[in-house]
Design a protein around this nucleic acid. Sequence first.
DNA 1: TACGCAAGATTTATCGTTAAATCTTCGGCA
DNA 2: TGCCGAAGATTTAACGATAAATCTTGCGTA
Lengths: 343, 343
Amino acid sequence: MVTMSEVARAAGVSVMTVSNVLNGRSNVGADTRLRVLEVVEELGYEINLTARRLRSGRTGTIGLIVPQFDLHYYGELASRISEALAPEGMHLVVEQSGASRERELSALSLARLQQYDGVLLSAVGLDMADLERIHPDVPIVLLGEQAVPDRYHRVRMGNVVGSRLATEHLIRCGAHRIAVLGGKLSAPHPEMATCRAQGWSQALEQAGLPHDPGLVIPLTTYSIAEARAAVATAIDGGLEVDGMFAVTDEVAIGALAGLHDAGLRVPDDVQLAGFDNLGISEHLVPGLTTIDPGHPVMVAEALRLLRRQLEDREAGPEHVVGDVSLIVRGTTRARDTSSPAPG
Amino acid sequence: MVTMSEVARAAGVSVMTVSNVLNGRSNVGADTRLRVLEVVEELGYEINLTARRLRSGRTGTIGLIVPQFDLHYYGELASRISEALAPEGMHLVVEQSGASRERELSALSLARLQQYDGVLLSAVGLDMADLERIHPDVPIVLLGEQAVPDRYHRVRMGNVVGSRLATEHLIRCGAHRIAVLGGKLSAPHPEMATCRAQGWSQALEQAGLPHDPGLVIPLTTYSIAEARAAVATAIDGGLEVDGMFAVTDEVAIGALAGLHDAGLRVPDDVQLAGFDNLGISEHLVPGLTTIDPGHPVMVAEALRLLRRQLEDREAGPEHVVGDVSLIVRGTTRARDTSSPAPG
DNA sequence: TACGCAAGATTTATCGTTAAATCTTCGGCA
DNA sequence: TGCCGAAGATTTAACGATAAATCTTGCGTA
């Protein structure tokens, strides 16, 4: 492997001059710079990022830690972030934590964090106490809904508002008994499932509709397969609904299949709404009515918070909540085109 | 940040002894080992992976480079590989190349490759000449279908066989005019789209059915949205078919939507088969008939090839082709339950 | 003439770890 | 008694880069 000192020797200059050239520093003469660049080209030299990092601390790499690569939401998130970083010359590497507390902790170990200039963490397994204990010396931005200590920078969606919007829409479209798929009524700390169930229950309450625990279909992995089975089981078990709010689009896809399994038609027998507005949701048959969480804005905000910390390690923590909007498609009946949509 | 020498000082031993303890080397006394571990715990010391890598060359990290995080195939691939590596104590980081030649080249730069002990590359933008030019000093396994120089280790699917299986099944189920969505009849070098179109045309030819260029619906990004639009446009333009082989499940999802847009029912008017057996394919309505490429085996093989290179840098290149199998679901008519399926 | 200063280049000292060689002990055995 | 070898620990010298300080010129100006 070619090193900087070999380049230096071949160009007849010092190692430091090569370093100066490659880092675009101004204290090099034009002819020297040219000669160094020629030699670099000729020998096929490339910088050793490991050595640079050890000495300078900078890596040009941002880490993104997600629970599962194969949940579509995270794939889309990773893709968006990667594209947003590319023009800045930084690049993104993504790790999967498997949604387990141990592996999230391991991903957050100093050893692993050191590898990055900054980290975006989409945590689901860690609790408040874990996060309280950790004092990373790398800029971190948390993405997601779980409760976190104040000192963390954080971006999250308007979960309660969005869920209420979705549920209100189901109600306006004529649904009276609306289940929440993947909802959770209580938990030690707020998380995605509780926030979204909260919006659901607010909407029902306001409309004077029932929101009894029997309407909550709990999930644990939020996979399509789990959601499908849970819906089919619930219907088989006698659950009667004419509307369903799925806490994510991923589980809404499972719900579509599960309702079909149970012989129910969407939207004729049961209307359905999701949350996340995945890329695929538009292309389901029928198209999925859902909540758009404003992905581009959330990504931009997350990166802004990260950059702010990179520039100023003492930057005070910010807490950003994204704007949500309702996207109406075929899984709900177009009953209320006359009345203006709120939000 | 706590360093090894601080631990050493606090424990009253040399830095090397701390290193020996942490790396489980046997030349440390039991009591010394215990004392060092206590101090490590007490100070919250964690190893600096950057320094270790610089000195020893080992990182414990495998890199996976994929074109797009948000194509479901790659999300599933990344997830499987990550899970397969976890028990070995290695971990996976994933990078997105954006399917562009430049960014694939940049991801393959020495500088970036050095960061990993080994790399799995799912390349689509690079051509034979690019790969010929590159001489990485890190073990690499190529995943995918493009032509590659012999010296690379490589795992790919049984594209031609699988596509023929899928098309034959469409024929057995009564389809006579079968389009190939995302197919490509010729290209400078073999790639996914040409291999899969080849299986399609073989099946048609053998059955004495037409496989004229008019039945080829080309795609460039292989996204759901592109596929949907292409199908709708083709049908609007007068294409009449009773069967469609989509080169990936992802584009099959788009086809389902596009056919629906055009007022055609699946499988009643047009039967549809895909390729990849994505997790979601089973849960579409109707379920997608597709080719299963044996993901677990492919992942295991890819990692075996990587390990082989890690253990022996001179290991001769291997070229593994996965076994495929037909998965019959609702997008094809169950016409031929009597006749045994081949393969 | 002499001084100061900027530009261009080099020297020195690390960053935190590990490979390899070296140094102590001390028990066993001739 | 004296020598050998194993076990346990230390010393030395890097890995490849960069920050900071230092060293040359050469030119403008007093």
